[in-house]
Structures are given as C-alpha cells and as structure tokens.
Design a protein around this nucleic acid. Sequence first.
DNA 1: TCTGGGGTCCTAGGACCC
DNA 2: TCTGGGGTCCTAGGACCC
Length: 432
Amino acid sequence: MTVALLDCNSFYASCEKVFRPDLVERPVVVLSNNDGCIVAMSREARNLGIPRGIPLFKARSFLKEKNIEVFSSNYVLYADLSRRVMDLLSSRVPVMEVYSIDEAFLILDHLPSPPLPLCKELRDDIHRSIGIPSSVGVAPTKVLAKIAGDIAKKRSDGIFALGDVDVTGRGRPPAFGHEKDIDLVLGEIPVEDVWGIASGLARRLQERGIRTALDLKKVDDAWARGRITLTGLRIVWELRSIPSIVMEEVAPPKKGIMSSRSFGHPVTDLEDLLEAAGDYTARAAAKLRSQESVCRLIDVWLTTNRFREGDRQYSAGTVVSLEEPTDYLPDLVAAARKGLKSIYKDGYRYKKVAVFLSGIEGTKGRQGDLFRNPDPRKSALMAAADRMAARYGPGTLSCTIMRPSNDWQMRREMLSPPYTTCWDQLPQARTG
DNA sequence: TCTGGGGTCCTAGGACCC
DNA sequence: TCTGGGGTCCTAGGACCC
C-alpha cells in the first residue's frame, strides 16, 4: 500500500491570510471560541515562540509588542475552505479519508501518475486555486505517513517519502526505501511524536527504555497487547510497515453529538441558561438530522468557572431519556430544559452549559413503536426549519425565545468577514 | 476582566441472565 | 467446612486525536 497524508499548514491562520494578501509574511494567530486561548499560529508567529494554547490575556502584551495579527475563530470560513480542499483531492484520488478539517489520507496505488509527481501536483493546485499551503508525507502505512508528513513540513519542497514505496513509478525509490533507512529516520523520532502516543503513554514507555519510534517498533507483541492495548499494538505494526489502521472512506455516523460554549460573561440567571441550552440543542439537533439519525438520550450539564478560585464552584450534569427516539427540536428542547432545571442551583456564577445527544440510531429501518404513529407534521416542520437554516443561516427558526440582551453569547471581537459564504461579503478585486 | 470545543476507543466493574 | 462458570449489556472514567 502507498498512502499519503496531505496536511494543510497552519490551517486556520492560512485561511485568514487567503483574503488578506497584506498578511502574507506576517505573524498571525487565531483564537479559540470566546476569544479564550491561542489555538493556531502561522509559521511566523510560531517562530516568535508563542506557546500553543496560551490564554489570550496572558499573551496580549506580547502580541501587541510584536505587532502580531489576531483573529477570532471563523469556523464558517475554515469549513468552507476545507470543503474546497477535500473536493479537489477527491476529484483526483478516488480512495481517500477526510481525517480532520485540514488533513486527508490518500491511497495512491493503481493511479495513472506515480506518487511523488502526483503529490507535487496536488500541493501546487491547492495552493494556486484555493490559496492554502500544505505538506505531504508518503509511506506504506498511516502511522509512517504521519511521520513522513512531519518531516515534509520542515522541507522547502513540502514532500517526504518514507519506506518501501515506489514513489517515482520507475521501480525502486530513490531514498529511504530500505528497512535500514526507515530505521535511521525512526531512531530520530521521539516516541511521544508518534501518532497515538501522548504524554501519559509516552511516560510509561520511557520508563521501560522505549524512547524513540524505532524502540517502539521493536517491542514484543504480547507485551504491547497487555500494556498499551490493541490500539497501541496496531501502531507498532504500522511502524513495521504492516497496514493495521483501517481507512475510513465514508465517515461513520456520529455516536454522540455535543454542543457547548463558554459564555462571554458569567451567567447567574436560570432564564439565560435555558436560552443558551435551547440554542445549543438546536445546533446539535441540526447535526443529528443531517446524518439522518434520531437520539434516545440527552445529557445536559453546567459548570462555574474553575479558574476563578475566589468563586464558589459547582458543576453538575444529568441524563434525560426521551419517551421515544426523536430528532424533533421542540421535544429535545423540552427535555434539555427539564434536565437543566433539575440541576440548576441559585447563587452561582456559571461559565458554561453543554448539551450532548446520545443513544443515536439511524432513521431508516428503525423499529416503529407499536402504540404510536409518527406525526408527519413533525418531520415536515423540521425539514422546513433545515431548509430555512440552509438559506438564511443557522438559528433562523428557533423554538426558544431569544431575548435581545443575551449576554451569554460568546465573545468574537476580532472576527474576519464570511468572505466565501455571504454574497455581500465577497472580497472585491480592483483593476488599474 | 479574560483560560476551547468537539470527537473516538478501550478497560474495568457491576447488574443481570442461564 | 465446602459456595460455579460462563455470557451480555451498561456505565464511568481514562487516554488519545484535531
């Protein structure tokens, strides 16, 4: 197997630069929801030594001092550019897996063009037609392709092949094709940089002298099965060039759907919390319907701000069972409100409410309730709501009363315009 | 003043069944 | 005195990913 990992460089920051040519070589950072932390950085910003995940208020003076451009997250823009990248890839490579908003695995076997020229072409086309830079790692397995991708990011050509793959279409690969060459590379990779090995596992491995990807490749199978589970053993096999992690060409339906937000300001009033919970339920329910599912359970929880040590702390959650599996928003909102009322306590400064739909099953082929007939008006109403959302934006039709002064809304003080998804925000080109 | 929001998979342990 | 041996299903919690 020959698999490539194509990964967009500093994706959110690159998206912000697409319509701002004045920022090309400038440091750019993108914030999390609610303008809380720095979650993405352009290469220039990373080189200035800003740690990922640092709260904005701690970085503010540094950002100003270094004249760094700061953006609130604009997920509508990122999702739209991501879709364009994935569409371009799938038009050239029939077997692929969209792994995240900015990454895809591509199967390069049995294609007319050999892997390396094809990867170069894909990379150039994505840059030219969408404006997003990317890197590509090519290898016999997904885990090795991830490692190759990390190396590719540091190279000026943005491409790196690792392992016994016929990258040129002319027989043997030019370099790093033999087992000893792969091992030379793996010996330089710290074990915690391997995909699937995070700090906790890495610590346990290091205690046993397993410090590099090469050490991990050489562990005993039975030991790995017992100590790092089957998931870990699969990683070990993939390091040995044995494909063990399946390609998911079609995204499986979600088993749980979450919607939660931190508030722009602390919230004390139950009515505000109910309003927020209704809004989040609507977002989650729209996702549920878009994958043609219904849910049986709805979890609601709320919490105070754990970082404010002076505040009295409280957090609680509850699960509400629906009478029958449903995707009908008014029923879901009623259940969410009931759950929230049961856990709400007066006198706390709340920071966040979350809603989680679970017990999910497909709408098609579902066993009907013998004693109940589904009400056709309910599905017609939801279909109409979804059409209105598609046309006029999410939240156009709601079953929660939204008061104008809802100060639970998140902060987005440095938001870029929806350049690609809103007619009156299209960037204008000037001539002459 | 201000600290994100999604997801997945795995294991252990309890309840319950024959 | 001595108190089986499997299953399944569910939940909680941990670890990992972007």
